[in-house]
């Protein structure tokens, strides 16, 4: 039968397909990382542009990809195309909970996040009317979890806003807020937070630390367990390079602003102001992992609780 013949051909071809699916970065001298675009990723971008990754890990080739969001990073690591990437704590925890073999290894940035509204008469979460829509990046994002944490603490119902959320990227959320659409509030991060607060009538009704109930790390560096196990030296170098970028940004905000203004397509003065302010601070230890996990477990976003040692690489 022709059909059987074709099926046999498919089965012969299938090992090739498997090879494509599972082909890892076999070359030991290559490290592939995904960079994202945003002020919170500045230590990574600065270290890359300054060539510090190569200085810290000589004789290794670095390949850089651009990722849109945490889901892209996760899928690329899963497909073996990527050794590590950068994301918020909640997407990392969701992946870990579903069986992703990856581990957080460094803090990239802390940031001032916040819920901005342009709706008159809304000054607290409790004032938000039923028909008002709140924009944020996506379900399971750090903004979503923070809003749920604040709603839980202030209103006693973590899911109260779940039916009023709308998923928009940061720039689209800014547009929606400015255009006077039904989106009257946006949970966002720098520099969009600063830009939105300049809209007439816009104000901050909730900031991230208030929502979380303390300090937390916004963006962490996450590496695949394969990479961590098989490339300890490269990993150590990458961690050093990120910390070097972070220290440089914290210590030389003006120089960094001049250096990165073109990259971020922003005015140097505006960038310098943000680097000087408390809106962003870089590096340090990973903060808030346990509290995020506890809350997400309680709310059913996660199923299995893990120990801190499993979640953060010492």
């Amino acid at each position: 039968m022709k059909l059987i013949k074709k099926l046999v051909i498919c089965i012969i071809i299938s090992p090739l397909m498997i090879f494509f699916f599972t082909s890892c970065t076999e070359d030991k001298r290559t490290v592939t990382l995904a960079e994202q675009y945003g002020l919170a990723y500045a230590p990574v971008s600065a270290a890359r542009l300054k060539g510090w990754f190569k200085e810290e890990v000589p004789e290794t080739e670095f390949k850089w990809q651009t990722a849109g969001n945490a889901a892209t990073v996760r899928e690329s690591i899963l497909a073996g195309k990527l050794d590590g990437g950068f994301m918020g704590i909640p997407p990392y925890l969701i992946g870990k909970d579903r069986g992703m073999k990856w581990t957080a290894a460094a803090a990239v940035a802390r940031a001032e996040l916040g819920l901005v509204t342009v709706q008159p008469g809304v000054d607290t979460l409790g004032d938000i009317p039923e028909n008002m829509r709140i924009a944020l990046p996506q379900p399971g994002s750090i903004q979503h979890i923070l809003l749920a944490m604040a709603a839980d603490r202030e209103l006693g119902d973590a899911g109260i806003f779940d039916n009023r959320l709308i998923t928009l990227s940061h720039p689209d959320g800014l547009t929606a807020l400015m255009a006077g659409t039904e989106v009257k509030a946006h949970f966002t991060s720098p520099p969009y937070l600063q830009k939105e607060l300049m809209i007439p009538g816009a104000r901050l009704i909730l900031d991230g630390n208030e929502a979380f109930g303390g300090e937390f790390t916004f963006i962490i560096a996450v590496f695949s367990d394969d990479f961590i196990k098989s490339h300890p030296e490269e990993l150590a170098g990458v961690r050093r390079a990120i910390q070097r970028g972070a220290d440089w940004l914290n210590e030389n905000p003006d120089e960094a602003a001049a250096f990165l203004a073109d990259y971020y397509r922003m005015e140097e003065s505006e960038l310098s102001r943000i680097f000087h302010s408390a809106a962003l601070s870089y590096g340090g230890d990973i903060l808030g992992m346990e509290d995020f996990q506890d809350f997400m477990l309680k709310r059913g976003y996660l199923k299995n609780g893990l120990q801190d040692e499993e979640l953060i690489l010492p």
Partner: peptide, 25 residues
């Protein structure tokens, strides 16, 4: 998938997006 859910419920595109970000393969 780019835009977010339509209305409260969302359609199939939203279902795809949500299962993706929640890693429900």
């Amino acid at each position: 998938m780019v835009f977010g859910a339509v209305g409260i419920l969302g359609g199939l595109g939203w279902q795809l997006f949500e299962s993706r970000v929640m890693m429900d393969t």
